[in-house]
Simulated assay, not measured.
Amino acid sequence: MNTEHRIVILGAGYTGMLAAVRLARRTRKQHVRITLVNPSPRFTERLRMHQVAAGQELADYRIDDILTGTGIQFVQGWATSIDPAAGHVVVDRNRTLPYDDLVYALGSSTDTSIVPGAADHAWTLDNPRTARHFADRLNAVAAQGGTLTVCGGGLTGIEAATEIADSHPELRVTLISVGAPGTMMGDKARGYLNRTLDRLGIIREIGSAVTKVLPDAVELSNGTIVSADMTLWTTGTRVAPLATQAGIETDARGLIVVDQTLRSISHPNIHAVGDAAAVRMPWGQIHGTCQSGMPTAAYTADTIARQLRGKTVRPFRFGYFHQPVSLGRRDGVIQFTRSDDTPGRCYLTGRLAAAYKESVSASPVPLFRFSRRMNVPVKLKAGRPATTQPA
């Protein structure tokens, strides 16, 4: 008779990796088998893809190395289906992994399906390989004094546009956004952002949506044609259809609908974390960022460990703290926020802000490594310990 409690974690991004190593630490004295599934053997720093796009090299973090000493089994492959009734996941259509608890951490990717031509003619920063190919092509375009159009004025678009403009001053960079860049910031932080965009020579096309992406241009809803030797698409996200296809209850976007303990309301032994989960707080739904995703992963690891011990579980609670934005390697703007992510009074700019953002981007891998040896608190809100719970 099999007495092992089998836990399968899908996705080894920021949330899946933290859930795995923290869960291994929390259950080290129990008869638990943890399996982590991911298509790539490398841990991808999604927070740094704009740096790769600008031609910078990142550290090569291998998942096996991060998992050293944890006892976690790493399976490289694509999760192709889930059978909640049978309690198993199929990997690469030929390997079956049974589970007692499933942690769904597949995350999201850039949605290029909404606007005609985006999938065919625009680049995305979804993975290091694509970002490196983009950087190689960008070098050739920059050498000819060419043009780059960045579609999307959110944080990803801002960071990509400024990083590239800072690294390639010979490029003509245009940022296209329906709303003004930095609308999530307060007036002073947004003013600093706009002055930085001016300093870097970034042209803004504000107020019109992209209606079509052409091989050498972008067409806007007001009829304007913006020429582009390269187009970078950073707006809109989509999630993997795996959960919906499996009959797990999802919302209109395909996010798993969860209860107050981040368990699927249709299949309670399935836990969703990060931007794969539709998580609601009293002030509204959490949006998918590393800032909110890491706490969901830590909470879920603690929750499963407590449930295995027969202990009670507190509901998940979360509040935002900041919006850190890099503006090249030597500049940045940090907007400190209220719990509901609306801007507060405090902000930080310049080199101090760049150092602050770098510390945020660099923190996950050390957190994973520390979590192999000790129970590391995950902060949610200005010094208040997160939703983490004693095991």
Rank of each mutant, 00 (worst) to 15 (best):
T3F: 01
E4F: 06
H5V: 15
L10V: 08
Y14V: 09
V21T: 09
V21M: 07
R22D: 10
L23A: 06
L23M: 14
A24R: 03
A24F: 10
V37W: 09
N38I: 05
P39I: 02
L47E: 05
G55R: 04
Q56D: 10
L58E: 14
Y61W: 14
I63C: 02
D65G: 11
Q73S: 13
A79L: 06
S81L: 03
A85V: 15
V90C: 11
N94R: 10
T96N: 09
L102W: 13
Y104F: 15
Y104D: 07
S108N: 05
S109F: 01
S109C: 00
T110Q: 01
I114N: 01
W123D: 08
N127A: 05
R129W: 07
R132V: 08
A135E: 08
A142G: 01
Q144F: 00
G145Q: 02
G153C: 03
P169H: 09
V178I: 12
A180I: 11
T183Q: 12
D187V: 13
A189F: 11
L193S: 03
T196N: 07
A209Y: 00
V210N: 01
L220H: 04
M230T: 05
G236W: 06
Q245L: 09
A246S: 14
N269S: 14
A277M: 10
A278N: 12
M281Q: 15
C290Q: 04
M294N: 02
M294L: 15
A301W: 11
T303C: 11
Q307A: 04
Q307P: 00
V313Q: 10
P315M: 11
F316T: 10
R317V: 14
H322N: 14
P324K: 08
G328M: 11
R329I: 10
R330K: 13
V333T: 08
I334M: 13
D340K: 00
P343C: 03
L352Y: 03
Y356W: 13
K357G: 12
S361A: 14
N375Q: 10
V376E: 13
V378S: 01
K379T: 07
L380Q: 08
